[in-house]
Design a protein around this nucleic acid. Structure first.
Lengths: 179, 179
DNA sequence: GTGTGCATGTAAGGAGTTACATGATTGC
DNA sequence: GCAATCATGTAACTCCTTACATGCACAC
C-alpha cells in the first residue's frame, strides 16, 4: 500500500492536532498550501482511505445536530508518517509559474515593456513576501511557542526569506534595465 | 479563444527558433521545464490547436524518409504572444515539493532524524544549484551571446542564485540543529 | 434574522503524465 | 550492427480543481 504525499499531509495534520476534515483543510490553507495545496474534495476521500487502511480511526464527534467526525492516528498511522519522514526518496519538485515563463520570453518585448514586466513581477513577489512574513510566520510562531513544534515556523521563515531574496534580486534587475 | 500558458510556451519556443514539436520539447527540457514542464503528448496537440487557430503555420519539412514539420508564427501568433507578455494578470504560482512537506512535519522525528532530514534536503538543493549553475546557465548564456536573447540567461541565473541562497539557509539551519 | 464559519460529502471535468506505437538517421 | 537521437502522434490513466448539494451554530 503506497501512500501519496497528500495522504501524509493528512496524517501529519492530524498529528499536529487537527481532528476534522474541515480542520485539516483549514490548517493546510494557512501553512502547507504554499508547497502542497489541497482541497476538501481531496481531504475527505483521503480520510476514508486512511481509515480503511487502518492508519486512522474515525469516531463520531457530533456537535448537537451538526455532524462531525474526529480522526486519530493509529499506531500504524504514526509509524507510517515517521517512516515517510525518515525515508530518503528523491522527490521531484513541481513548480509552475506563469510569471516566470513570461519573464523567460520577455526578449520579444520592447525595452520599456520588459521593464514593466519585471516591475510587475517584483511587486507580485513583494506581495508574497509581505503576506508570508506578516501573516504566515506569526501564525506558525504562535504554534511554536504554544506547542513546541518548531518546523512549521522554520518552513514559513524559509519561505519569507527566500521571497525577500528574490525581491531584492528583481529590484537589482530592474535597476539594471532602467535606461 | 483563450490560450493556456502551455500554448504561449509553444509560441515562445517557436519565436526563439524551435521549428519542430520535438525541438520545442527538447528546448523546454533545458530551460522552461523548471517553471513550466511539458511533454510531447502536450506539445503535439497544442501545435495542432494553434495551427487551427491561425497562430501558427505548419509546412512539410521532411528529412528524406523521416517526416518532419516546420512551424512558424503568423502575424496573429506573434501578436498573441506579445499581448500575453504585456498583460498584467495575476498568475497564481503552483508549487509542490514533497521534501518541504516533510520538513514541515519534522517535529514528529527524534532530533538526530530531524538533522538527517535537513541534511538530505540541503544536499538535494545543492544538487539543483550545481546543476543549474553548471549546466543550465551556460546553455542560456550561449544563447545570449549568439542570439541576443538575454532573458533566458537571466531566468537561469535567478534560479541558480535562489537555490544557492536556500542552500546557505539550510546550512545555517543544520548548524543550529547540531547538538 | 442574517451572514459567516463549521462541517461533510459527491460529481464532473480539466490538465498533464506515462505508456504505447512506429520508424528513420547518425555516429561509434 | 547497434545505440542514441530525431521525429510524430494516440490512448489510458491519474491527480486535482471547481461546482454542486446540504445543513447547523454562533455572533452581531
Amino acid at each position: 500500500m503506497k501512500l501519496t504525499p497528500s495522504a501524509y499531509l493528512t496524517l501529519g495534520m492530524i498529528r499536529l492536532g487537527a481532528r476534522s476534515g474541515y480542520a485539516i483543510k483549514k490548517a493546510a490553507d494557512l501553512s502547507t498550501r504554499f508547497f502542497w495545496p489541497t482541497s476538501l474534495a481531496q481531504v475527505y476521500p483521503e480520510l476514508a482511505r486512511l481509515v480503511q487502511a487502518g492508519l486512522l480511526t474515525r469516531t463520531e464527534d457530533h456537535q448537537g445536530a451538526r455532524e462531525r467526525f474526529a480522526y486519530e492516528l493509529t499506531e500504524r498511522g504514526e509509524a507510517a508518517l515517521e517512516d515517510w519522514l525518515r525515508a530518503s526518496h528523491e522527490a521531484p519538485t513541481q513548480f509552475r509559474d506563469e510569471s516566470v515563463l513570461r519573464l523567460f520570453f520577455a526578449d520579444a518585448l520592447a525595452e520599456q515593456d520588459q521593464l514593466a514586466l519585471v516591475r510587475r513581477l517584483r511587486e507580485q513577489v513583494r506581495g508574497v513576501a509581505a503576506h508570508t512574513s506578516g501573516e504566515i510566520v506569526p501564525l506558525a510562531e504562535a504554534l511554536e511557542s504554544s506547542g513546541g513544534t518548531r518546523f512549521p515556523a522554520l518552513v514559513a521563515r524559509l519561505r519569507a526569506d527566500t521571497y525577500a531574496f528574490v525581491e531584492q534580486w528583481l529590484e537589482q534587475l530592474e535597476a539594471d534595465l532602467e535606461p
